[in-house]
Write a protein that binds this DNA or RNA. Structure first.
Length: 660
RNA sequence: GCUGCUGUAGCUCAGUGGUAGAGCGCACCCUUGGUAAGGGUGAGGCCGGGAGUUCAAUCCUCCCCAGCAGCACCA
């Protein structure tokens, strides 16, 4: 007589089940509706196959499509397996490796057989077709426990070198499982999975692209082809996602930058930005804003050299740790008598600064500093050059020349927490002014680091203390800190839910030491200051790129390159339009006139596409009455008001948020 | 840096082994029109750079450069 298993359900009831029964059996016992709806189970909190037998008395929660996070996770993981199966069905000899779910879908890393080229976009329709076949065949997905040797033998027999390698290295104490798809295909997988491929909606996925990816994420390893798909529970969700992607593409700052004539990039200076008048107007507004914020927060602005001798970079540690990202130049006047510039090879080396911090320490070191002077907050709109890997460059988001709203706070040990707290508050006001919400992450000590564990303990705890004191929540990222310091990172969420890393603060005890920065303490002795590296925008380039995408080009009036255009309907209104422009300019508004011989429809369209916030239309009527017809971007209606009212309105809207 | 794809007019893109086309934009002319494209005419291109194959290369091959997507890195 075997003992029955006690299965506790979320409503508090208990079902007694035969040994070997499964969550599916429980669902069936409860009712046919649930039996049909249940796609997986949470057993003692762990997501599991619906057909995996209970091992003991358990807490059970049945998972249905209404548990969207779990359902999506399962579906995407299954889509990945179906993808791998489809690729192998189409091209026998393809090696398979890994296929996880992602935020919006799934991917599978595969290696094409030796007798064909790597997979390309052109192969995707055929793969999709085969995937639909597999889904429609409704192949049962069955879990089986295998021994390590069984797995290794199978993978080696089939020439699956990557899988075999992985099977060898799976953790000792883990139960090793495979999942059968029908009777003819299987993959090594921890699971869980849906009961059969037919549980997937064949219209709810789409293969998106192929890309290279390294085996186990390491550049030294073989490069595989990663096939990306997006996967959902139904076609409606898929379409909604595809619409979101189109929306994101419309917001692409590279596209809008061209359309709005903000900046350009060209190959002769790839990775560095040519700012056009419109784009630099945005920059200047941001810079003026940030100067006011920093001035009020007790920072003093400095300007330091672009190029410094290599000896300086050796001392700061950059020469050793950062040289491959630095632009290095010979300190020699080249001999140009030959065809080209000739360098003797005996020159001393100089380097463009990739960071501002060493120069700031040098400023700090001038003269003798008393503890009474601390904290000293040195700010710089610091232009830095980093020779980034070519593949990393991306519009304004990742460039080789960029300007940081940088500052370094030199303070005593005892001042660190309060300085971090003040910075937390300052950063908060800035991000709010732009309408961003954010998450804070605390990046903890990396494997390779300078400094003692005691210092790291202290530095990490100081950041936590400041966060706690300000009532903020954060997420910790082990191993992600800089080699000299733990750091807080601000991750902004934009209007369509994407996140961007911008601001940071890092507490550093290494650089003051390397560059021998000291202050005289109350005791008359020399002490090391702590140095806080911090930025809020991060870089102007990236921040402007984020703003463009966040606002889809429709920048708030205070940032808009052109805040208003006065457009005439008939040339009889030209003189009045010029008068209006003069008054608007006198009121500090960035305004253009459009007196061209074009219809008003045409002008409205053009300035709307250029994302000008307000169009002031003037015809005969307005000229006679001293009014303007204001058409605001995004609205269909016009509002007629006196020129003075319009100026007041624009002046109000054009006031930067910190001056309101 | 790695893998794949791409590079044709200012922009978006067609196209062909016999030195090129569209739409938008631009210039000029007509039109003075009330809230998202009025009409006409015209000027723009060393078809990313270099080498090779060929009677002939924008097109095929190789190398380089840049862009895009991802990876790996990062503000």
């Amino acid at each position: 007589m075997t003992e029955l298993l006690k299965i506790n359900l979320p409503d508090g009831s208990v079902r007694e089940m035969e040994p070997g029964s499964t969550p599916a059996d429980v669902a069936a016992a409860i009712g046919p509706g649930l039996a049909k709806a249940a796609i997986a189970a949470r057993v003692d909190g762990e997501l599991r196959d619906i057909n995996r037998p209970f091992e003991s008395d358990s807490e059970l929660a049945l998972v249905t499509a209404r548990d969207e996070d779990d359902a999506l996770e399962l579906a995407r993981h299954d889509f990945a397996h179906v993808l791998a199966e489809a690729v192998q069905a189409l091209w026998p000899g393809t090696q398979i490796t890994f296929g996880p779910s992602t935020d919006d879908g799934f991917y599978y890393d595969v290696k094409a057989p030796a007798d064909r080229d790597p997979f390309s976009m052109d192969d995707l329709p055929a793969i999709e077709e085969k995937m639909r076949e597999i889904i429609k065949a409704d192949k049962p997905l069955r879990r089986e426990v295998w021994s390590r040797q069984q797995l290794i033998d199978k993978w080696e027999a089939e020439g699956e070198a990557f899988k075999a390698e992985w099977a060898r290295e799976l953790p000792e104490n883990e139960e090793l499982t495979v999942y059968w798809s029908g009777e003819d295909w299987l993959d090594m997988c921890r699971g869980p999975h849906l009961a059969s491929t037919g549980k997937l909606d064949p219209q709810a996925f789409k293969l998106m692209r192929v890309a290279g990816a390294y085996w186990r994420g390491d550049q030294k390893n073989a490069q595989l082809t990663r096939i990306y798909g997006t996967g959902w529970l139904n076609k409606k969700q898929l379409n909604a996602h595809l619409t979101r992607l189109e929306e994101a593409a419309k917001r692409d700052h590279r596209k809008l930058g061209r359309e709005m004539d903000l900046f350009h990039l060209q190959e002769e200076a790839h990775g560095s930005v040519f700012w056009h008048p419109n784009g630099y107007r945005i920059w200047r507004q941001l810079e003026a804003y940030m100067r006011r914020k920093m001035d009020k927060a007790g920072y003093r602005e400095i300007k330091t050299p672009q190029v410094m001798d290599a000896r300086q970079w050796e001392q700061s540690g950059h020469w050793g740790k950062y040289r491959e990202n630095m632009f290095v130049i010979p300190d020699e006047v080249p001999n140009t008598e030959e065809d080209g510039p000739v360098i003797s090879g005996e020159a001393d080396w100089m380097a463009l600064k990739p960071m501002n911090c060493p120069a700031h320490v040098l400023v700090f070191k001038q003269g003798i500093t008393s503890y009474r002077d601390l904290p000293i907050r040195l700010g710089e709109m610091g232009c830095c050059h980093r020779n980034e890997p070519h593949g990393a460059l991306h519009g304004l988001m990742r460039v080789r020349q960029f300007t940081q709203d940088d500052a370094h706070i030199f303070c005593t040990e005892g001042q660190v927490v309060e300085e971090v707290q003040a910075f937390l508050a300052l950063a908060d006001t800035v991000y709010r002014d732009f309408g961003f919400s954010y998450d804070i992450k605390l990046a903890l000590r990396p494997e390779q680091r300078f400094g003692s564990d005691a210092d790291w303990d202290k530095a990490e705890q100081e950041l936590r203390d400041a966060l706690t004191a300000n009532g903020l929540e954060w997420e910790e990222l082990p191993g992600e800190g800089a080699f000299y310091a733990p750091k807080l990172e601000w991750h902004l969420t934009d209007a369509i839910g994407r996140t961007w890393q911008v601001g940071t603060i890092q507490s550093d005890r290494v650089l003051p030491d390397r560059l021998d920065a000291t202050y005289v303490g109350e005791d008359g002795e020399k002490h090391r200051p702590v140095m806080l590296h911090r930025a809020i925008f991060g870089s102007y380039e990236r921040f402007i790129g984020i703003l463009i995408e966040h606002f889809a080009g429709r920048l708030p009036v205070w940032l808009a390159p052109t805040q208003a255009v006065v457009a005439t309907i008939v040339s009889d209104a030209d003189d009045y339009a010029k008068e209006a422009v003069g008054k608007l300019e006198a009121a500090g508004i960035r305004v253009d006139s459009d007196l061209r011989n074009e219809k008003i429809n045409y002008k409205v369209r053009e300035h709307s596409l250029a994302k000008v916030p307000h169009l002031l239309v003037v015809g005969k009527r307005e000229a006679e009455e001293g009014t303007v017809a204001v058409r605001t971007l995004g609205e269909k209606d016009q509002r007629v008001m006196s020129l003075e009212e319009a100026i007041d309105m624009l002046r109000t809207e054009a006031t930067p948020p910190d001056l309101r």
